[in-house]
Design a protein around this nucleic acid. Structure first.
Length: 350
DNA sequence: GCCTGCGCTCATATTTTAAC
DNA sequence: GTTAAAATATGAGCGCAGGC
């Protein structure tokens, strides 16, 4: 059996995975794994094929008894880190996967994937409308108006959304640049970060970290999804727990920042359908490019500062807002967990 | 204490879109 | 044309606040 590409949507389509055999259990929405999948997708890893992630993860647990994880390709190392975080976040899952059949592993993956996709769909839907309130000039209407239910006028088709999506380093006010972006002559890839990621929408080529991921728009979107829609720009009115409280979340995660940035980028775009593999929106490349930076150990100082800043914005009363979280200590925690998992998967050899 | 309204999450059914 | 994924519409139900 070979590992599957968890980033590809192909194995999931039409149930054509080679591993898919016989009658399958129906994914029940009331299963706790679905609820867990909702939060896991938002905060740990959003864009992947979960059945393949689990299948590959279980296989790799056996392989890393002989081959150190460091010898695997970068993509597989990241995938395995996600797999380990999933095991850590859901007690009893490792045993369930180890003892379960291939069908059971796929079923668990489908439940988690169903939750992650459901949450993503909910967030896409609500942000589509809410984002117009946040980008409107204070006290004024957007001119020409943008529709709440249709995105056809957004993206580079509109001055406001175009100026926010314009890649940092390019000048939206330059008529030639604007025209090239509008006509599609200049294609924007996922790793060309838009200016809305930066505080006050200002990019400093001499200091690329300056203001990165600290824009008001991102904070609004983050609060909308994680604390509550009413907590965005006024005193919270919520009488029901928001997503963060529901899932015991009291600090910002790296992946949740990348997730929100991806959602905002999609909400500003003219694309009507969120698709990981869509080459026009290129959401998957964008999401991964942010994760690449935020998981880079060499950038831990800036990342520490960024996470502390975010915790103050979103969870001002939590201890995480007062005490910086060390990215390095997070990495060492992952390594410690990996050792523990290795021992658990092979108790005889330990 | 009970009732009601509100803001919210989540589930389900249906429709739309896109890949094959 | 078939199928799966995503978007959308709708409603159930939770939990808190405020009025009685």
């Amino acid at each position: 059996m070979t590992t599957q590409d968890t980033t590809s949507s192909v194995p999931n389509k039409r149930g054509s995975s080679a591993l898919q055999m016989g009658p399958r259990k129906k994914a029940s929405s009331s299963d706790p794994l679905v609820s867990h999948g909702r939060h896991f997708g938002r905060t740990v890893f959003a864009l992947c094929n979960y059945p393949s992630l689990l299948t590959n993860g279980v296989l790799r647990l056996e392989q890393i008894e002989d081959i150190p994880l460091e010898d695997f390709p970068a993509e597989e190392r990241r995938e395995h880190r996600v797999f380990e975080q999933l095991l850590e976040s859901y007690p009893g899952l490792l045993e369930r996967l180890k003892d379960g059949s291939e069908e059971e592993i796929l079923h668990v993956g489908e439940l988690i994937g169903k939750g992650a996709a459901g949450a993503r769909g909910d967030d896409t839907k609500t942000l589509k409308s809410a984002i117009l309130d946040w980008i409107s000039p204070k006290g004024e209407a957007i001119r020409p108006p943008l529709h709440r239910n249709s995105k056809i006028d957004r993206g580079f088709n509109h001055d406001l959304t175009g100026s926010l999506l314009c890649p940092a380093g390019l000048d939206w006010n330059d008529p030639q640049t604007k025209e090239k972006l509008r006509s599609g002559e200049m294609l924007v890839c996922g790793d060309q970060w838009p200016i809305f990621l930066y505080a006050h929408h200002a990019y400093d080529p001499e200091d690329p970290w300056c203001g990165l991921l600290r824009s008001r728009l991102l904070v609004y979107a983050y609060k909308h999804v994680f604390t509550s829609p009413s907590s965005v720009d006024r005193e919270p009115k919520a009488t029901r727990s928001g997503n963060a409280r529901l899932h015991g979340m009291n600090s910002v995660t790296i992946a949740s920042l990348a997730y929100i940035a991806t959602q905002v980028r999609f909400a500003l775009s003219s694309s009507s359908v969120f698709s990981r593999t869509d080459t026009t929106t290129d959401s998957e490349t964008f999401y991964h490019s942010l994760l690449d930076l935020l998981e880079d150990p060499e950038e831990y100082k800036e990342i520490d500062e960024l996470l502390t800043w975010w915790n103050r914005q979103v969870f001002p009363t939590s201890s995480a807002a007062k005490r910086p979280i060390s990215a390095n200590s997070a990495l060492s925690k992952i390594r410690q967990k990996r050792m523990a998992l290795k021992q658990a998967s092979n108790p005889v050899s330990s």
